[in-house]
């Protein structure tokens, strides 16, 4: 589980960095596109690009921990903005559209990784608490009980011996 946790942590950092880079590239591409077309024309073109995103969500188990599994479903426009008129737009907007699709994928990937990371961390903490409770409370408690019982049995054994001696003395006298 620790190996999976470390792996997920590494992947989460990587995915976050990738997402930030892609957002930065998208921002630049959109800035260039809006500079080329103008805000009003770009708004007009992009107004029809809103599309429904389909994400398949399921779950899987990592060493007994149930974690979510998310996947962006492939759509004809790949989740990006591709319903604008290609005649009235430039390749700058095509580039921005392509980058927006990649950003969406990266967001879904990061969401999954981050949730997995949290769940695995919680499970590791829980296991650690159980181990600590066993090590410092339950096992010492059981050992104390065993010692107490051992002492009690020894005491009973000594009493029994003393009683037998006393009976033997009485039998000899009688």
């Amino acid at each position: 589980m620790t190996m999976e946790f470390l792996q997920t942590a590494r992947e989460t950092v990587e995915a976050k960095r990738k997402l930030l880079d892609e957002f930065s590239n998208l921002y630049k591409a959109l800035s260039v596109a809006s500079g080329y077309h103008g805000y009003i024309a770009l708004d007009k073109e992009l107004i029809a690009t809103e599309s429904e995103l389909k994400i398949t969500a399921g779950s899987r188990s990592i060493a007994g921990v149930r974690v979510p599994s998310l996947e962006l479903q492939d759509s004809p426009n790949k989740g990006g903005m591709k319903r604008y008129n290609p005649v009235d737009t430039s390749s700058w907007l095509d580039h921005a559209a392509q980058l927006s699709g990649e950003c969406l994928r990266a967001i879904v990937e990061l969401a999954e990784l981050q949730r997995n990371f949290e769940l695995l961390a919680m499970e590791i903490n829980r296991t650690k608490r159980i181990t600590n409770a066993l090590e410092y409370i339950i096992i010492p408690g059981l050992q104390a009980t065993i010692n107490y019982l051992n002492m009690k049995f020894e005491e009973r054994d000594r009493e029994e011996k003393a009683r037998l001696k006393r009976v033997k003395v009485l039998v000899v006298r009688g």
Binding site: T56, G58, S59, R60, S61, S69, E71, Q73, D74
Partner: peptide, 15 residues
């Protein structure tokens, strides 16, 4: 997906 021993499902990514 496949069913697990505890009745839950294990989902596969299409990719």
């Amino acid at each position: 997906y496949v069913l697990c021993n505890d009745g839950s499902t294990h989902f596969f990514k299409r990719s």
